[in-house]
Design a binder for these strands. Structure first.
Lengths: 189, 189
DNA sequence: AGAAGTAGTTACCAAATGGTAAAAAGTAAT
DNA sequence: ATTACTTTTTACCATTTGGTAACTACTTCT
């Protein structure tokens, strides 16, 4: 069975000769829903590639409530990029939004890999940048819309996600209270 | 008088030997408030470096109202990145939020420059990526906050901007109606 | 200076959303 | 199966925000 990370990278570029190198840098891990992959105010030492499941990037606001900035699912890289690059503490937290399997790559090993195979750095950077732009686009699409519309857009863009992560997470992601989101769902039926 | 673009790049890396090359690729332009630098549904053929003033990236929603996604000011590059890279029509529009002076660099000339001086591609990519991450951070900081708080955060992060661009633009950027924003301002005094 | 146009303010009411609380449904543990 | 626990739903009222409209302040043009 081919590894999801390798399979994913091959969609962009043939990495066959370096499969071993890449796999040697990565470590497979599993997390249960709710488990924390990165605590807030800590320096991210690794980047995750999601093989299965959904991660969320969140933080706790002044009122103690969780704010969900992003969901990331299969075939996406996940880290707090600025903090990972500059090795500074991240304010955000990375949490399993449902049970997940990831490949964890430590920064040290990643940069060793980059040093050995510069094209991999280019490759991953371009993948990550593309995804960043997508995330911005998605956020933009919510702007200036009311709660019901934001939910409708979300359901068009990510229909399966609603089945996989708790309602409260989606509510937080869409800046709606869980009660309001529940009401919106009711009105749609 | 040194050019703002060169001065800016020098903050990150010494580009002295290539100043001539860079300047040859750029063309200075001025726009008045409200002038459109890029129409929606057109392919961005150039990237702008802002020497002076503020640009906004907007689009028109289903109800005919403007939504302001971003403000960009002095010492920032501005284009619709995905569309610029892939030479596809952008849904967004680039408009002068106040009178501006920019250096416009055509994609063709930029890529010629990149071919001649690969380090410039790396340099600009890293600058652009850093700014993207910043924009995401700023948007995140508004998430889950009420209108008055969003305005307060905005005024902390960008105090001068409020003096330079119309209130309606800021309202749209913060997803508030101009009337509500006016009321919020009143309550703050 | 006066007129016309644009931008910002204010007031009012309507609609959307938040917050509290309790019930219902679903999940996990014994 | 029963219990305990968590998540989701529902109802209610309070608060925030939006939309319409009129007014004021500012610009710009002649």
């Amino acid at each position: 069975m081919p590894d999801p990370l390798i399979t994913f990278l091959k969609k962009f570029r043939d990495v066959s000769p370096d499969e071993g190198l890449i796999m040697a840098a990565a470590e497979q891990r599993s997390y249960k829903e709710g488990e924390v992959l990165l605590k807030e105010n800590t320096i991210p030492r690794e980047i995750f590639f999601i093989c299965n499941g959904v991660l969320k990037i969140t933080s706790v606001n002044d009122k103690g409530a969780d704010v969900t900035y992003f969901f990331l699912k299969e075939n996406q890289f996940c880290t707090i990029l600025q903090s990972f690059q500059n090795q500074q503490p991240a304010h955000e937290r990375i949490v399993a939004a449902c049970d997940v399997e990831v490949m964890a790559i430590s920064r040290v090993k990643l940069y060793e890999l980059y040093a050995q195979r510069p094209y991999i750095e280019e490759l991953i950077n371009s993948i990550v940048q593309r995804r960043l732009l997508e995330k911005i686009q998605i956020r933009n699409s919510y702007m200036g819309q009311d709660a019901a519309t934001r939910y409708r857009i979300f359901m068009e863009q990510e229909p399966e996600l609603a089945l996989r992560v708790p309602l409260a997470d989606i509510a937080s992601y869409l800046c709606i209270t869980p009660q309001s989101l529940s009401r919106i769902r009711k009105n749609i039926r």
